[in-house]
Computed example of a mutant assay.
Amino acid sequence: MAAEVAVERAGELKVRPDGVDDAVWEALGTVRDPELDSPITELGFVSAVLSEPAVLTVELRLPTYFCAPNFAYLMVADAYDAVAATVGEQAVVIRLLDHFASDEINAGVAGGRGFAGSFPGLADDELEELRVTFQRKAHRACQEQVATHLIKTGWAAEDLATASLGDACAGQDLDRLTRRRAELKLPAGPDAPLLLQDDGTPISQLDLPLQLRIAKTTRISIEGNSGLCRGLLSVRYNLPRPEGVDQVATG
């Protein structure tokens, strides 16, 4: 297995296996854990990338042996699609390690059977509905972050119902919000309302306080789960403790 190096970038610890082609690493960086809304490269979920003339193998890992198989399947399938689109004629194998359903997931992704075909009798349909659920959660959390920045610059909370994306502060939070909008096929231009319901209708001034509280709760939940998973992964695989993960998260 390839040696790992810890790389500090923009305040986040990234564990990158030695010798990984930049294009492959960039492709893997487009794959997000659906629940944590973070790239698997930043979470430390990429264990190794092994390149041979005929085949490129990516080994993935998760914080615990019992991580939800539907989330794991999404991650493995998305990694396969992202890398296969990058390497051209080279065959691609994505291998999930140390998980109770590794065999079923790895075989299902390799055979293109989908989640239902990989777990017959246990899955009623494919995972797109689950994916959309988590995309909507991430979108709400991103909206709350951008709205909070505007309030800090002097906007009154009740006036946010009339704000547009063009009013938002430029930066990573706004970039993430526009990407989430594009994924959900919601308006993402500068004239689009800043705050939208899941169905794309603007959030009214009357509903705004409740919707922002719900979105804040969603964001805190995502961030808390992300910290916990990073801590568990660092203990399970003896990795450097990620920045911002306290001692409680890892015991």
Rank of each mutant, 00 (worst) to 15 (best):
R179K: 15
D125A: 07
D167C: 15
V146E: 12
A147F: 01
I203R: 00
A188C: 10
T153A: 14
A182G: 06
F134P: 00
E144W: 13
G166H: 15
G171S: 05
L130D: 00
H149G: 13
P187W: 14
T133H: 06
D191H: 14
A170R: 13
L130M: 11
S204A: 09
G189Y: 12
A141E: 06
K185E: 13
R176I: 13
Q143C: 02
P202F: 10
A138N: 07
A156E: 11
L122P: 01
Q197S: 04
E126R: 01
L165K: 07
Q172M: 11
L130W: 00
E129H: 08
T201Q: 04
A138Y: 05
L184D: 03
R136Y: 01
L150S: 05
S204Q: 03
E158C: 08
A156I: 03
A192H: 10
L212G: 00
T201L: 06
E144N: 06
A182Y: 03
A168Q: 11
D198F: 05
P202I: 09
S164Y: 10
D124Q: 09
R180W: 12
D191W: 13
E128L: 07
Q135I: 10
P187K: 03
K185T: 14
G171Y: 01
R180H: 12
K137E: 10
L160Q: 09
L195G: 09
L130A: 04
P193M: 13
Q135C: 11
T201P: 00
L165W: 12
L206P: 00
L160S: 10
R213K: 08
L174E: 09
C142K: 08
D175V: 13
R140W: 13
A188S: 14
C169W: 04
L160G: 10
H149D: 14
D199L: 02
G171R: 01
A123P: 00
L160D: 09
P202S: 08
D167N: 15
L165V: 11
I203C: 02
A138P: 03
E144P: 00
A163V: 09
L206G: 11
A147N: 03
H139Y: 14
A182E: 14
G200M: 09
F134Q: 02
T148F: 04
F134I: 07
T178P: 05
R140L: 15
I203W: 01
P209D: 03
Q211Y: 11
A147R: 02
G171N: 04
L212A: 01
D198G: 05
W155D: 05
A123T: 00
A156T: 08
